[in-house]
Design a protein around this nucleic acid. Sequence first.
DNA 1: TAGTTATATTATAATATTATGATATGTTGA
DNA 2: TCAACATATCATAATATTATAATATAACTA
Lengths: 97, 97
Amino acid sequence: MLKYDAIQLEQAARCLRVMAHPTRLLILHLLGESDHSVGELEKLLNISQSNLSQHLSLLKDKNLLASRRVGNQRYYSLKDKRLLGLLALMQDLFEKT
Amino acid sequence: MLKYDAIQLEQAARCLRVMAHPTRLLILHLLGESDHSVGELEKLLNISQSNLSQHLSLLKDKNLLASRRVGNQRYYSLKDKRLLGLLALMQDLFEKT
DNA sequence: TAGTTATATTATAATATTATGATATGTTGA
DNA sequence: TCAACATATCATAATATTATAATATAACTA
């Protein structure tokens, strides 16, 4: 009856929910510029290591981030650069909301 | 120190959080096709009137929707059609997440 | 191997979001 | 004015999200 698929809507909603946090948005923006290790992000964001790690794993779970180990550290990056288009459009749309 | 503005990030996050619900995403998609009254949406979505009204007012609060009264009914519409671009990009990005 | 650094996980209290049911408001038409 | 309809608001219980503190894991270095 309806041409929209409930499963897809829920999937999209879950992804959005994960993006819908100021810290996580900032993480995405920062990783849009260049990859960063957890420690680097910790300094840039000024939040606790534990909290950062949780934010990162939420983003990773939704496949928005990739990560690679480099020695002692773990570097995160955007999984799909098209996300930058989404972020830009959002900034545009939501700036004076 | 950081080139991103915390206020703007929070604003964007709040808007996203409001979009980040399957019912509200569907409302946005439906209103992207044509304006609808609350009653029409209620039938399309098959949720309670009260719940629908709350979803609508969340979207309206974030300025994503406009509404007009027509006699007995209230019609809702997308405030800014550029939102459709956002929805399309999201579908694209999040489909197999 | 022991100590140190980097990151992840777990438990939890505080807070926010959701859907429901009940009630209120506003509009139309008799 | 009254009844019926359309929509909004309110209170609330259930659930989800958040940040913190404590602990665990994993990789390097001496």
